[in-house]
Every structure is written in structure tokens, then in C-alpha cells.
Design a protein around this nucleic acid. Structure first.
Length: 136
DNA sequence: GCCAACGTTGGC
DNA sequence: GCCAACGTTGGC
């Protein structure tokens, strides 16, 4: 199973909103690198939900509910979307600051390419972040 | 196919 | 609100 991280500005779509709705269609991605990751997502993969700009923290965990399909927000066949489902809120949100301070997470895409809105997370990174979040 | 100019993202 | 970093566009 693979792990991912998606970013959203809370003012546009927040973790709370995802929890309320249960699941949502992750669409509107218009970046080739991000699209590649969307296409690689498999059902059941874990997803960190990160708040950019405001909050700047990983708020919760979601999972891939439906693998990629044509993005409904455009007629262009080339863009894709996935459905994601809220799993649970982190005990303690993990802030960007904490991630930057942690040596094991210095290789994270979030740190090195802050603009990529859909990014892969390694098993190690996933575990480290859960630990920081107080999740064992 | 290169690269300058421009637009956007996101941390600060 | 500023600006650095990155991606995309378009002229050549």
C-alpha cells in the first residue's frame, strides 16, 4: 500500500468539510506531476490531508476510495480526479514546523517542493508523522 | 528545443 | 502583503 499527501487551503476546502461530507471528489488538479500521482493511487491507499497557507499542518488521514477517472470539472479528457474518504482526524495535527524540525522528514516533498499539491509519502515518512501526531 | 517572461502557489 | 520558487507559455 502506498501513501500520499494532498494539500488544500482550508478557505477553499478544509479537513472539517471532508469529515462532514465523509468523502469528496479530488478534482481540479492541473499539474502534470500531481496528475501522475493521482493516476498511481490505488484504492485503499493512505492520504495525509494538509492545510496550506492557513494552519500549515496535516489535519487528518483520508484514503483513496475510487481510483482515477476523468476530472468532472473539465471536458478535457487528459485531466483526472479521484474520490477520497475521511478516515480519522490526527490526535494532534502535525505542523510544517514540526516536519521541518524532524531529520527523518527532511526529504519530504512537502519540504522540498512546497508547491506540488499531490505528492507521494514514503512508508518511513508516514510512520514518523503518525508518531509525531501521538498515534503510537 | 531553448529560454525569457509571466502567472501561481504558499511560506513567512 | 511580499517574494522566492516553480510551472507554463510562447517567441524565436
Amino acid at each position: 500500500m502506498a501513501y500520499w499527501l494532498v494539500k488544500s487551503e482550508p478557505s477553499v476546502y478544509s479537513w472539517d468539510q471532508l469529515v462532514k461530507e465523509g468523502s469528496t471528489c479530488w478534482s481540479g488538479i492541473r499539474n502534470y506531476a500531481a496528475r501522475l500521482h493521482l493516476k498511481n493511487m490505488k484504492k485503499g491507499d493512505g492520504i495525509f490531508f494538509y492545510h496550506s497557507n492557513e494552519g500549515m499542518e496535516i489535519a487528518g488521514i483520508a484514503k483513496v476510495e475510487r481510483e482515477y477517472f476523468k476530472d468532472p470539472t473539465t471536458d478535457d479528457e487528459r485531466w483526472v480526479a479521484v474520490d477520497i474518504k475521511a478516515v480519522r482526524q490526527l490526535k494532534k495535527p502535525v505542523t510544517l514546523e514540526q516536519i521541518k524540525k524532524n531529520k527523518q522528514l527532511s526529504g519530504m516533498v512537502l519540504v522540498n517542493n512546497s508547491r506540488l499539491s499531490v505528492q507521494p509519502v514514503s512508508n518511513k515518512e508516514w510512520t514518523s508523522i503518525l508518531k509525531i501526531a501521538g498515534e503510537k
